[in-house]
């Protein structure tokens, strides 16, 4: 700063202008940050806030932005819903039924659906790793005849829209007698996750030096050993990214699950949630609580693993 004023003829003036410019910049950044925070968080906050309101409070006009008397009854209703004891609006509270809303009998499906979602996501993750890691290593480090063709092939499968797969999937799954099974979801989710995983991993493996691969092989590793003994231990960040993406994609997937699931045997969380929203008799506060439950796990995962997600997103999306 000081030597700038020396070289600047109107020193004082220049310095003042500089300071003003900096102040303006700070203000713009501050305003931007505030607007962005509100834009992102306001809708979610509203959802969370209304999940803690009672049925009576949630229907007030204008709405209560902050619950007057926060309550956990919506969540309790979800966690205590069981086959034996069907919780309805009547059994839950003595409020005026005219204010609308009751706990649907399907509430008991919510926790099993979460379990189904978890199971499907976990299986899809495992299969992605088993299939994706060797493929990515081959594409990144082996110069073989047909490599470019393979890359293009996987890129193309990456852009097939899921909705274009629905009809053929449905008929195949039906003929295999796999409708309403978790297996049908695991299988079809591979179509929407594997290409992405492969490209996250290819990108990462390409970033590791070729000479490392050569050193391993001269040291006596077969291709397989070079992958397992040298590359796998070094690729943890990309493996984490793959696990996260695959898990979240499966956890959040809706369209395919809508086609192939019918009962609680295979229904995943998004399906049960979607069913609530189309039922006009269900209490809003209850739906919101269910929505919050669906949001919490992925958001926690995203916040904890932010670093891996950002790098993975860039690798996978840019490459495919």
């Amino acid at each position: 700063m000081s030597d700038k004023t020396l070289t600047q003829p109107g020193g004082i003036d220049y310095r003042r202008r500089q300071r003003l410019a900096r102040l303006a910049q700070t203000l713009v950044i501050l305003a931007g940050a505030i607007v962005l925070t509100i834009y992102v968080l306001a809708p979610v906050t509203w959802l969370v806030s209304s999940s803690f309101q009672t049925e009576a409070e949630i229907v007030s006009v204008p709405p209560h932005w902050i619950p007057d008397e926060p309550t956990l009854q919506n969540f309790e209703a979800i966690f205590s819903a069981t086959e034996e004891e069907e919780i309805t609006y009547e059994t839950r509270s003595g409020q005026d039924p005219a204010s609308g809303g009751f706990i649907p009998s399907t509430a008991k499906n919510l926790l099993p659906a979460m379990w189904n979602s978890f199971l499907v996501a976990t299986l899809v993750v495992i299969l992605n790793l088993l299939v994706g890691v060797p493929a990515a290593y081959a594409l990144a480090k082996i110069r073989f005849w047909g490599r470019d063709a393979s890359v293009y092939f996987i890129l193309i499968t990456r852009v097939i829209p899921d909705i274009a797969l629905v009809v053929p999937f449905f008929l195949v799954i039906k003929n295999l007698g796999m409708l309403d099974t978790i297996g049908s979801l695991v299988l079809t989710y591979l179509a929407v996750t594997v290409p992405f995983s492969v490209f996250i991993l290819v990108q990462y493996f390409e970033g590791l030096p070729d000479e490392l691969d050569k050193a391993a092989r001269v040291d006596g590793c077969s291709r397989f050993q070079a992958l397992v003994r040298v590359f796998l231990p070094l690729s943890l960040p990309s493996l984490v990214a793959v696990v996260l993406f695959t898990f979240l994609t499966s956890w959040n997937e809706f369209l395919l699950a809508l086609m192939f699931t019918q009962t609680e045997a295979s229904q995943t969380l998004p399906i049960v949630l979607a069913a609530f929203t189309s039922d006009f008799t269900i209490s809003f506060s209850f739906i919101n609580a269910a929505g919050v439950l669906a949001i919490v796990p992925p958001v926690i995962v995203a916040v904890i693993f932010e670093r891996y997600i950002v790098s993975g997103l860039t690798a996978g999306a840019v490459k495919g």
């Binding site: 962005l36 998004p270 949001i295």
Partner: peptide, 12 residues
Amino acid sequence: ILLVPWAIPYVA
């Protein structure tokens, strides 16, 4: 914070 909308399921 920006990752929140990305992470939540489309249905939610």
